[in-house]
Simulated assay, not measured.
Amino acid sequence: MSFGLTQEQRDLRDVVRAYARRELAPGYLARARVAEFPWDCQRELGKLGLLGLLAGPDWGGEGEPDFTAPGLAMEELAYADFNIANCMLPPLIITSILREHASESMLQEWMPGLVAGDTMVALGLTEPGSGSDAGAMRTTAERTATGWRLNGEKTSITAIPFAQAAVIFARTDPALGAGGVSAFMVRMDHRGVRTGAIEDPGWLPVGRGTIAMTDVDVDGDALIGNVGDGFRTVMRNFDFTRPLLALTAIGAAQATLDETVEHVRSRAAFGSPLARFEGISFPLAEHATHLDLARMICYRALAKRTAGEPHTADAAMAKWVGPLYSSQAIHDCLLQFGHYGYSCEYPHEQRLRDVLAVEIADGTAQVQKIIIARELFGRDFLPYPRDGR
């Protein structure tokens, strides 16, 4: 396994790093405390070509997508502004799904706005009674004379307060369990659709919310891909979104660690710099090591994705340890600043609240361990029926 980057990957990383630290870092705290989507920043990401990295050559991406590239971009963005980094994730997921499964008319309608940063399309999967157990969803889509009628409720949907549409997953054949789930493009201003916002302690600029659908009639061309392919579609995409999410946590934690290293170098106690005390320096050394380990797992998963190799367990490992080590690092670094670290004038408490969300999104630590165990022992040892019902 090569641990090096290609010249193209290094160039992308350097461009994003320079932009993020110059343009985004100074405004992180101000943006982080307002539930307002940063459309101006999103359009800048579009101009940099970051939102189209997985969209395909017709929309600014590569013929064969390089999944390491969005990982590098999102980690560098998160170092400067965790929330701006996560504004990239819905367009990356949706453009990847549309590239593989959408009709030409749907591509023409949605791709330009997504890759330019003018449009947001959310992913409607989680429900009040089912999160990672997507096979237990209750939202239904019944055939009509002209298309489909959707009924149901979604919750914990990233960016839905600011989205123009959502890819909704619904049961088209309840008898087939996970195999009876299909995906639909649904506009949020459609009759019968109601959205709501969830108040959270962090992640405010990205937002999280709910969707309720009552007799929502959509045309047949709202179907994405084939009937019954929805569950497999989203599960395949989670295998690359999980390491991307983890890298946003790692980027924010790395920024906090770097700031803490500088602080304990210059701050003195009892006539000596804090960095000379092993009680200070050893925990920071441990966090530096843990973040590097988590980072390598993330990029290994993304490299395997690019190469077409199995990487489900790698993605779950990345999603488990990345947010865990990142939250621990930010927490301990905050304490190294003493009473200053608890102040809202410093970014540490804000990063801690923001990064905590990544321990839940796209599956909790417990779900990731189930996935890892499944890859180790096989599906016969799953704690639920093999057909997903």
Rank of each mutant, 00 (worst) to 15 (best):
S2T: 14
K304G: 03
H190F: 13
E262D: 12
M1C: 05
V216R: 00
L223K: 00
K319E: 10
Q7P: 06
L293T: 10
E199V: 15
V16F: 03
L223Y: 00
A163C: 11
P347G: 02
V15N: 07
H263W: 12
H339Y: 10
C298W: 06
E199F: 13
L291H: 01
D40N: 03
S266D: 14
F277A: 03
G308M: 06
F381T: 12
K369V: 15
L150R: 00
C298R: 04
L92K: 02
L5A: 00
G129W: 14
G27K: 10
H331G: 11
H290W: 08
T214M: 04
I372Q: 00
T306K: 00
Y325P: 04
A55F: 14
F184Q: 03
L12E: 07
Y325T: 12
L257A: 04
V218Q: 01
L92I: 14
A145C: 13
D189H: 07
Y325G: 09
L54I: 12
E62K: 09
R43G: 07
K47Q: 15
R22F: 14
G46Y: 13
D81H: 05
V218S: 02
S130Q: 13
G49M: 13
A175N: 06
G279P: 05
F3D: 13
T248F: 03
E100G: 00
G228W: 01
E36A: 06
Q7M: 12
A318Y: 05
W148A: 08
V216F: 01
R267T: 10
A18P: 05
D58G: 05
L5Y: 02
Q7H: 08
R194Y: 05
G220D: 09
T158K: 02
L29I: 11
V181M: 08
M317L: 14
G113I: 06
D354R: 05
Y342K: 04
P385D: 05
D292N: 12
T233A: 09
Y19T: 04
I93Q: 06
S266Y: 09
G131M: 15
C333A: 08
L247W: 03
P128A: 11
L50D: 02
E278P: 06
T126P: 05
M74N: 06
I224A: 00
P90A: 03
R267W: 04
A316P: 03
Q108N: 11
R33H: 07
V264G: 04
C87L: 01
A159W: 08
R208D: 05
R99P: 14
P323G: 11
G117L: 08
C87D: 02
H339I: 12
A102K: 00
R351H: 06
L382M: 10
I224L: 04
A178N: 13
G129N: 15
P38W: 01
P57G: 00
T95N: 01
W203K: 10
E359F: 11
H287E: 07
G180M: 15
P383D: 15
M185D: 02
V193C: 03
L382W: 09
R265N: 10
G46Q: 12
V15Y: 06
T146K: 03
E76C: 09
G322K: 12
I372F: 08
N86C: 11
K154S: 12
S2Q: 07
I330E: 02
